Amino acid sequence: MSAPRRVLITGAASGLGAALADAFARRGDDVLRTDVSFDAGTVGSADGPDGRRLRLDITSEDDWAAARAWVEETWGGLDVLVNNAGVAGGGRLDVAELEEWRWILDVNLLGAVRGLRAFVPLLKAQGSGRVVNVASLAGLVHPAGMASYNAVKAAVVALTETAGHELAAHGVTAHAVCPSYFRTNLMSSLRGADTALASVMTHLVERAPLGAEEIAAAVLDGLDRGEELIVPDDAARAAVALKRDDRSAYDALLRAQAAKLEGRA
């Protein structure tokens, strides 16, 4: 049996982050659950009722530095960094405010960048490790009304691929996770001026066939296989295949969706 891995997960209070933390823990890994909603203070023990918990605001470089200090002092290293925390957003190009763009960029992209800046030196020094960045199907397939979300998630995919190339010589792998809609509480973070888009996104999340636990299980299976791009559900794989194999049909579908969104406004 392999030794337990040391895993840090952001956004682990609920949703996919909590499901991933539970999935790693069931495998016997030692998990540090981090989230901006956790109280500041001690993290507790691995076998406590809540496991190890640490407050981490991914927009705070100080919080990232504190997380790295805890990892070094307690574990002496890290095997898996999971940049999962993020927010929902979007809006049509003439509706979304520029401040919405700044907000989602700071959280969904620069949050992962800060995590890499904090832990890449440690991973390179130890000569091993995995970086897992939770992006979205929106990073690969780009529906109307979601320009800011699409853009930052595509950037996370690009960031992950770059990290994989850059860190390969140091024994570190990088993996981007791109699920379609699944049932989660992500929509509680949604903000923005485009109420028509908010209605559509909320409906798609609430009606999604899969929950966070099923996506988490598929992510761990993808990591077991060493997949650098993990597309964990059938709906996401079908959308990627349509874009790859029949671009005209893909464009027609998304333009029809764009017209429908405009009609809802």
Results as ranks from 00 to 15, higher is better:
Leu167Asp: 09
Leu242Trp: 02
Ala46Gly: 10
Val240Asp: 00
Gly15Asp: 10
Asp94Phe: 13
Val7Met: 14
Val156Phe: 06
Glu227Arg: 12
Arg225Cys: 07
Ala65Thr: 13
Glu228Trp: 12
Gly111Pro: 06
Asp194His: 12
Val240Arg: 12
Val80Ser: 09
Ala13Asn: 00
Arg53Gln: 15
Ala249Met: 11
Val95Trp: 05
Leu186Thr: 00
Arg237Pro: 07
Gly115Asp: 09
Arg183Pro: 04
Ala217Ile: 04
Gly41Leu: 06
Pro209Asp: 12
Leu105Ser: 08
Leu223Tyr: 00
Leu242Gly: 05
Ala18Met: 08
Asp194Leu: 11
Arg237Val: 04
Val71Gly: 03
Arg225Tyr: 00
Arg237Trp: 00
Asn108Tyr: 05
Gly192Ile: 01
Asp50Ile: 00
Val82Ala: 09
Leu32Asn: 07
Ala25Lys: 12
Leu190Phe: 15
Ala66His: 04
Asp246Glu: 11
Gly89Met: 08
Leu116Ile: 06
Ile58Asn: 05
Val134Pro: 01
Leu109Trp: 05
His170Asp: 15
Thr162Pro: 02
Ala138Trp: 06
Ala239Asn: 14
Glu262Ala: 15
Asn83Val: 05
Thr184Asn: 06
Ala235Ser: 06
Gly89Asp: 12
Ala236Ile: 01
Ser199Met: 09
Arg33Trp: 02
Glu72Arg: 01
Asp221Ile: 00
Leu210Cys: 04
Arg191Asn: 10
Gly15Gln: 07
Gly129Glu: 04
Ala147His: 11
Ala176Leu: 14
Met201Phe: 03
Leu81Arg: 08
Val205Pro: 06
Asn133Ser: 07
Gly115Pro: 01
Arg52Tyr: 09
Ala158Lys: 10
Pro179Lys: 06
Pro143Lys: 04
Leu122Thr: 10
Pro49Ala: 15
Arg55Cys: 08
Ala135Trp: 02
Glu161Ser: 05
Asp234Glu: 15
Arg130Ile: 02
Pro121His: 04
Leu159Arg: 05
Val231Ile: 14
Ala218His: 12
Gly127Asn: 06
Asn108Cys: 10
Leu197Ala: 03
Arg264Leu: 15
Thr59His: 11
Ala21Cys: 07
Ala40Lys: 11
